Amino acid sequence: MNELPPLSDEALVRISRQGGFAAIATLSRPREIDFAQCDPDQRGQVCSLLEACLPVASKEAGRADQRFYRIELQACAQRAQEKLVLNVPEERAPRDLVKLWKNGL
């Protein structure tokens, strides 16, 4: 995928950490970002981060006990079935993605 779908204030982003030798649900620490609760600067930061993840996302992420970040993007709440999923290998993840996952917005 080369570009993100258009994102409105109805967009939802969920980031979790997956994989590893022993997958433990509590260590995934999912973060959910509701664009309706974000100001325009925060939305811009999240969109820039998502665009930075596009070239490093891989369908191969998570194989051989590799940790990865799973990003689920729901562009519009009214069309909940339309979801984009990016799997970003931990070692290729942008620093800002790791920071967002650890600390939230």
Rank of each mutant, 00 (worst) to 15 (best):
I15R: 03
A80F: 13
R43P: 00
L73K: 04
S16F: 08
S28N: 07
R67V: 02
E72W: 07
E72K: 13
D9Y: 04
G104P: 09
A36K: 09
A93Y: 01
D34K: 08
L27Y: 14
L86R: 02
V85E: 10
E51I: 05
Q42F: 01
L100M: 15
G44C: 04
R79K: 15
D41S: 02
L49Q: 11
D34P: 08
P55Q: 08
L54A: 04
C53H: 03
E3M: 13
E10W: 11
P94E: 01
E3T: 15
T26D: 09
S28R: 03
Q66N: 05
T26Y: 10
E90F: 14
A11F: 02
R63Q: 09
Y69T: 10
L7W: 04
A36W: 07
P89C: 02
L105P: 02
E72S: 10
I24C: 12
Q66I: 12
R92D: 06
A80Y: 06
N87H: 15
A57N: 01
R29W: 11
L27G: 07
D9C: 04
L12D: 11
K83T: 01
L105E: 00
A25V: 11
V98C: 09
I15Q: 04
V46H: 00
A22D: 15
L12M: 15
C38D: 00
A64Q: 15
E82F: 15
C47W: 04
L73A: 09
V88I: 15
L84G: 03
S48W: 14
W101T: 03
L7H: 00
